[in-house]
């Protein structure tokens, strides 16, 4: 029962955050820049034309009515029309979002698969050269701008070594539309096209590695320090005293509790991960939210901008909700505190 209340509370809080976000972005996009109708028509339009469009866009109605109309649209999945592509923003996002999602998922897989073992090794060989290398790698991952890592990888692996492609999601010669889930790797598997799958993977690797560096560093740092904390606990000493093999102690008794801070940090990191995805996508010509969002910003296409921000925010909130629920499952203390507070 406690678990149920915990989830309900978390859901309501997520909803509240999204409403807050929608108010903030509505104010930024509709109120700050001045008259959207004037922006849409340009400086040469007559006052009458502007007044007409204002009426058509509903801008002559009170602000709270405009917001209500906007929210009503959002609930139905309608983000309005893009001024730039002349298509519905929702339709544009349906093609852009899966590309970003695929990149982010690959990033998380890489960051956890490399970050956790790095942290475990560093903790196990604390204050030796293994630990020092791990520390330097994690630090460099955290402090290097992701777009700079992207650029360096592009230069070294792509241009000099000709190892991997440096642009786009698939080779231009490959004609494949991911029309089931929108994720190339998943759809190629479903359609049974190993060639496409392999090409997709080759295109995905460099952007995902560039994006993973920062999170990898954080995960390795957190895993290391929490493993070290745990290793001083009595029950670990007891396990050792009973002669339980080192590997079992490390992975069964020490690693498990360190998943909690790691997951927590992953949730917080996710915001900067999404932001960095914008930069990395631009470097690799990845057809995701960034290309769409930045173009929208340069053309002051506010419906598209609001769509991009809302989807990114919703994605972040959803992931954190997921992480909280996971944490609640792993650690009963969290759900009890969460249900009561």
């Amino acid at each position: 029962m406690e678990y149920f209340f915990f989830i309900v509370r978390r859901l309501m809080w997520s909803l509240l955050v999204l409403v807050g976000l929608s108010i903030v972005i509505f104010m930024i996009a509709r109120v700050v820049p001045g008259d959207p109708a004037r922006i849409a028509l340009g400086p040469l339009a007559t006052t009458e034309q502007v007044a007409n469009l204002r009426h058509k866009m509903g801008l002559d109605r009170p602000l709270y009515v405009q917001y209500a109309v906007y929210i009503g649209g959002l609930v139905r999945g309608d983000f309005g029309q893009s001024l730039l592509t002349q298509r519905s923003v929702a339709l544009d996002l349906r093609t852009a979002f899966p590309a970003t999602l695929e990149l982010v998922l690959a990033t998380i897989v890489i960051a956890t698969l490399l970050g956790i073992p790095t942290g475990v090794l560093a903790a196990r060989f604390k204050d030796t050269w293994v630990d020092n290398i791990g520390r330097v790698v994690s630090l460099l991952g955290v402090v290097t701008p992701s777009f700079f890592i992207a650029l360096l990888l592009q230069l070294l692996v792509g241009y000099y070594l000709h190892f991997l492609p440096v642009n786009g999601r698939l080779d231009p010669s490959v004609s494949f539309t991911p029309d089931i889930t929108g994720l190339v790797l998943v759809d190629a598997l479903i359609r049974g096209q190993p060639g496409v799958w392999f090409d997709g993977l080759r295109h995905l690797l460099l952007p995902a590695i560039s994006l993973a560096a920062a999170s990898l560093g954080q995960i390795a740092r957190i895993t290391r320090s929490s493993m070290i904390d745990v290793s001083r606990k009595d029950y670990v000493e007891a396990a050792r005293a009973f002669g339980i093999p080192d590997l079992v102690t490390t992975f069964k008794y020490m690693l498990k509790p360190s998943f909690i801070p790691t997951l927590t940090i992953l949730g917080l990191e996710f915001a900067s991960l999404l932001g960095n995805a914008f930069l990395v996508e631009m470097v690799f010509g990845w057809p995701g939210m960034a290309a769409y969002g930045v173009r929208a910003i340069l053309h002051k296409d506010f419906n598209a901008i609001m769509g991009v921000v809302m989807i990114t925010g919703a994605f972040f909130v959803f992931v954190n909700l997921l992480i909280d629920v996971l944490l609640g499952t792993v650690d009963p203390r969290i759900r009890i505190r969460g249900a009561r507070s």
């Binding site: 955050v17 700050v32 914008f278 910003i297 340069l298 991009v308």
Partner: peptide, 20 residues
């Protein structure tokens, strides 16, 4: 609520509204 907004993405939106 502000912590739930990816900073770079929001900064992009704000610079868009104010012009880069």
């Amino acid at each position: 609520i502000f912590l739930a907004i990816p900073a770079l993405v929001m900064a992009l939106a704000i610079t868009a509204a104010l012009s880069p």
